[in-house]
Amino acid sequence: MQETLIAAAERRAVRDARHDRRFRWMMAGAGLFVLLALGGAALSMLWEGREAFSTFGFGFVTSSTWDAIGQQFGAWVAIRGTLVTALIAMLIAVPISFGIALFLTEVAPTWLRTPIGTAIELLAGIPSIIYGMWGLFVFVPMLAEHVYPWVDANLGSWPLVGTLFAGPPLGIGTLTAGLVLAIMVVPFISSVMRDVFLTVPTRLKESAYALGSTRWEVVWDVVLPYTRSAVIGGVFLGLGRALGETMAVTFVLGNAHELSTSLLMPGNSIAATIANEFAEADTDLYRSSLIALGFLLFVITFVVLALAKLMLRQLAKREGH
C-alpha cells in the first residue's frame, strides 16, 4: 500500500517536472520569437531592398532624383524630409511637453492633475489618421489663409532664415507636417516627462523649498538635473515616433520629390513615400527601392529608440531597479 503511494508520488513528480520543462520551453520559444521578429524585420527588408542598394550603391542615399518613369531612385529628398519634419516637431514639442509636465507635477492643483493628465494621454491614443484628416481639412486651410501669408510677408525677407519661410501659402508642406507631428508627439513626451518627474524623491524637493527656492528653481535646478537622462530618453522616444509617423504626415506633406529650401513648399518623407507609392510600384526595382527606404527608416528609428532606452535606463538604475 505504502509502496504504491510512493510510486504514485514519484510518477507525479516526474510528470510535473516534464510539464514544467515543456511549459518553460514554450515560454522561452515565445521570448525567442520576439527577438526573431525584430531581426527578421531588419533582414527581410535588407534582402528585399538589395536590388535597390546594388543598383544605385551609396547613391541611393545621397541622390535626390526620384523618377519612377526613368527608374532612377535616390532617397535623399525623403530622408531629408523625414529629418526636417521631425526636427521641427521636436523644436516645438519639447518645450511645450516640458511645460505640460511641469504644470502636471508642480503647478496644477492636485484635483486637476489626473483629469488633465488623462486627457493628454487620450490625445496620444487617437489614431494618427485622424490627425492627418484634421490636418488636411481644418489645419491646412487655416494656415494657408491666415498664417502662411503673414509668415511669407514678414519672415520671408529676413536674412539667412528668410529662404526657409518664403513661398506660396499652399498650406500643405514641410512646416505643416512638422506642426501636426508636434501636436502628435506632445502627449508622448509629456507623459514620459511627467512620470520621470514624479520619481524625484520628495525629500530632495522639500529640501530645496526649505532653502527658499521658488518652484521654478526647484524644477530647473533639482528636478531636471536629477531626471536629465530620462528626460532626454523621453525626447528621443518622441523623436522615434515623429520619424516613423506615416499617416498624419502623408496627408499634409504634399508628396513632392523636388528638393526645396522653403519649409512652406510640399516635400516628402520616407514613410509618406512608401505609403503613397507602394501600391502603384509596378517594377521590381521600384518596389525594391521602396523597401530599401523602409530599411533606412528602420535603421534610423532603431538607433534613436535604442539611445532612448539606454538613457531611460540610467534613471531606473539610479533608483535601484
Partner: peptide, 22 residues
C-alpha cells in the same frame, strides 16, 4: 528581450507592414 520588445513597441508601424509584405 525586454530591450528588443521596447524597440518593437515604438517601431514605425509602416516598417512592420513592409516586413509582413516580404
Amino acid at each position: 528581450i525586454r530591450f528588443v520588445n521596447d524597440i518593437l513597441l515604438s517601431a514605425p508601424s509602416i516598417v512592420l507592414g513592409l516586413f509582413v509584405y516580404t
